[in-house]
Simulated assay, not measured.
Amino acid sequence: MNFVKTNQHFLKLALFAMMAFLLSTFSSKVLASSNNLEAEQNTILLAESPRNNQRICSQRGANWSEVNYFESKNYFANICRLPNGKLMLVAGRKSNPNQVLQLPVEFNQGYLAIDGNKTFMVSDGSMSMAINGLVVQEEQIIYQGK
């Protein structure tokens, strides 16, 4: 008789331990996902703060104005209107916003800038760079501001 009661107690203890383990695992997953959400929100806020440093049309010259602004994961691109009405692409890496490429652009269902054998295309959906007509880099637009 003692053997049966001991087994019942052992079974209850094992069941309790298993429930505690499952609950703690579930709780830690919930905490981890909420921490990731907070980290993502903080990341978004941190990513937005230097955006003003990358929107630089007015810093390029007197009477330059911003026509459009694009961001992908790693790059930013300003489309600026010069006083003479022509458009200029001012773009660079987010990791080094002080080193930029500045090229005249044409607009035809996107902005196209050519620098020798390199072609830069910015549209509502993506940014891309082609060398000798072959796309070597393309990233989706994650932010666009006018």
Rank of each mutant, 00 (worst) to 15 (best):
L103K: 01
E139P: 11
I141Y: 01
S49Q: 12
S123D: 13
M129C: 12
R55Q: 04
L82C: 00
W64N: 10
Y143Q: 13
S34T: 12
Q144V: 03
H9I: 07
K118Y: 15
Q59Y: 03
M127F: 15
I114R: 15
E48H: 04
M1A: 04
L89T: 01
S27I: 00
M18Q: 02
R55F: 01
I44E: 03
L87H: 03
N132S: 15
N117T: 14
I114G: 12
A17K: 02
A91F: 02
I131G: 09
N117Q: 14
L134E: 15
L37A: 14
N42G: 07
T25R: 11
E138A: 15
Y143T: 09
A91N: 05
N96K: 08
P104C: 04
N96L: 12
W64A: 01
D115N: 15
N52F: 08
A47G: 05
L112F: 10
L87A: 03
W64Q: 07
L11N: 14
V4C: 02
S27W: 03
Y143G: 04
Y75F: 15
E71N: 07
L112A: 06
L31N: 05
K29V: 00
Y143V: 12
N132Y: 10
T25W: 01
P50M: 05
S49D: 05
K73W: 05
D115G: 07
A14E: 07
N7M: 13
F21N: 00
Q8E: 08
